[in-house]
Each structure stands twice: as structure tokens, then as C-alpha cells.
């Protein structure tokens, strides 16, 4: 089958094709873990690569660890969205009162992050987040996706992304404090 060039550059098209070839099986397995249905898992892979296509600017090397984490985050989000849709669940968006800085300890946070974090610290604090929060956190801070794209990937509103990020920052701060 002849691939017709439609990407901005030939290298971008080739990178996309290579990503699909190398990651399709891994992404399928990750989606199947969540969906337990081969056809739905295939749909998740398909949806994930549409999202990858839109975010090719965030992809580094095809075999880069950050690329692997990015693709798996995307397919897990796609699978979770399909799962929620199948169950008829709307993603809950609680009203959250964002605490002001008035009650915050102005010194505690900076003290915590001054020390070097070990790999174990990093895995622990990020692992303490629920699946959706972890995806939002990683897409925002590791890959710098705009809130609108994160919202679309997670099946939530842009406003809720902002709210969640505030909660995630608090959660991570608490986890670091526990570890300290």
C-alpha cells in the first residue's frame, strides 16, 4: 500500500508511521487491560493515534522513554473514556472551593522541594495520584499540553482541568511532606 505524503514534512510522516508500527501492540495491551474487550481496545488504539497525530510536535525520538510514556498515557485516557462512555457514566466534576493562600504555610513547600528527590520519591508521589489525575499531571507538566487538549483527552471540561491541577499540586505537596 502506497503511503501518500500529507504531513508537514516527510520525516514527520515517517515518524508517525514508525510510532504506529512499534507501539501498536503495547498500546493495545494497555487498552485491553482497562477495557477487557478486544474490539474496544482496538478502538482505543485507533482513537489514541488520532490524538498522537494532533500532538506530533510533542513527540521526541520514536524510541525515547518520554515518547513511550506519552503514547501509553494517551491510550489509557482513550480507553478510560470509552469505558466511561460504555457505562453511561459522566465524568464527575465536583464543585471545588480553591483554598486561598491565607492558611498556607509559606515556608513548608519550598523546604520540601529544595532537597533532591530520588527516583523512588518521584514514583511514589506520582503513583499516589488516581489514574485520571496522573494523566492530567503528566500531560500538563511533562508534555506541556494546553488545557483544552488535556480536557479533550480526558473527557472533561477545560475548567475542570484547571481545578484538578490545583488539587494535584496539593496532593503532591502532601505526599512529599509525608515522605519527608
Amino acid at each position: 500500500m502506497v503511503l501518500v505524503f500529507t504531513f508537514d514534512t516527510v520525516s514527520e510522516r515517517d515518524r508517525f508511521a514508525a510510532l504506529y508500527e512499534r507501539y501498536r501492540k503495547l498500546m493495545y495491551v494497555k487498552a485491553l487491560d482497562i477495557l477487557r474487550d478486544p474490539m474496544l481496545a482496538e478502538d482505543a488504539v485507533s482513537e489514541a493515534f488520532i490524538r498522537v497525530y494532533r500532538n506530533m510536535g510533542k513527540i521526541e525520538g520514536v524510541d525515547s522513554p518520554r515518547t513511550a510514556a506519552f503514547l501509553v498515557t494517551i491510550v489509557r485516557n482513550a480507553a478510560l473514556t470509552i469505558y466511561a462512555r460504555r457505562r453511561g457514566d459522566a465524568v464527575p466534576e465536583e464543585d471545588v472551593f480553591l483554598e486561598t493562600a491565607a492558611g498556607a504555610d509559606p515556608h513548608g513547600v519550598e523546604d520540601l522541594v529544595e532537597r533532591d528527590l530520588t527516583n523512588e520519591d518521584v514514583v511514589r508521589v506520582v503513583g499516589a495520584l488516581d489514574e485520571q489525575s496522573r494523566a492530567i499531571f503528566v500531560l500538563k507538566y511533562a508534555y506541556d499540553l494546553p488545557h483544552r487538549e488535556i480536557a479533550e483527552q480526558c473527557g472533561i471540561t477545560e475548567n475542570y482541568v484547571t481545578v484538578k491541577l490545583h488539587r494535584i499540586r496539593k496532593k503532591i505537596t502532601e505526599e512529599l511532606r509525608i515522605g519527608n
Binding site: 512499534r22 503495547l26 522513554p65 518520554r66 513511550a68 527516583n119 503528566v138 507538566y141
Partner: peptide, 24 residues
């Protein structure tokens, strides 16, 4: 936050690459 997220992506990505290669 970017530092933590970036390191997590790097660590998790290394694990996933190994898993990917084993599957392929």
C-alpha cells in the same frame, strides 16, 4: 512540578520501552 513529571515520564517510559520490545 515539571521536574517531577519529567522524571516520572523518563522512568515510566524506560519501563514501557522494555515492555514494548518484549512484546514485539
Amino acid at each position: 512540578m515539571k521536574r517531577i513529571a519529567g522524571r516520572w515520564a523518563e522512568l515510566e517510559g524506560q519501563r514501557l520501552l522494555a515492555e514494548r520490545d518484549a512484546l514485539n
